[in-house]
């Protein structure tokens, strides 16, 4: 069994107006940073996974995302998995 750290990024679906992102974008522009735009605000979730391999770990996290961690009606998500090196304290 290996231990992985999954970093899950959750954002509102593109079709849904991200009002938080818009408000922050306006704030950036009022701070004279016109080069910055298309701000999107989401959530970052980290979770440790015990699994024999990356594919299994990915499947487990995917299942958790679909069941609980995200709502597919309004959110998209992205999973990044990193295997924790053996013997290195967390």
């Amino acid at each position: 069994m290996k231990t992985y750290t999954a970093s899950i990024t959750v954002t509102l679906r593109r079709a849904i107006l991200d009002v938080q992102g818009k408000a922050v974008e306006h704030a950036l522009h009022s701070l004279h940073m016109p080069a910055l735009g298309s701000v999107r605000i989401g959530k970052h979730i980290e979770v440790e996974v015990q699994a024999p391999d990356t594919d299994t770990a990915n499947d487990l996290v995917m299942d958790a995302c679909k069941k609980l961690l995200t709502n597919p009606v309004m959110e998209d998500f992205h999973i990044a998995l990193v295997e924790k090196a053996a013997g290195v304290p967390a």
Binding site: I16, V19, Q20, N71, V73
Partner: peptide
Amino acid sequence: LCESGLLPGALIRNENL
């Protein structure tokens, strides 16, 4: 009810935050 799938759609942050 929306989260449980008994009703369609979702309720998200108010437009004016």
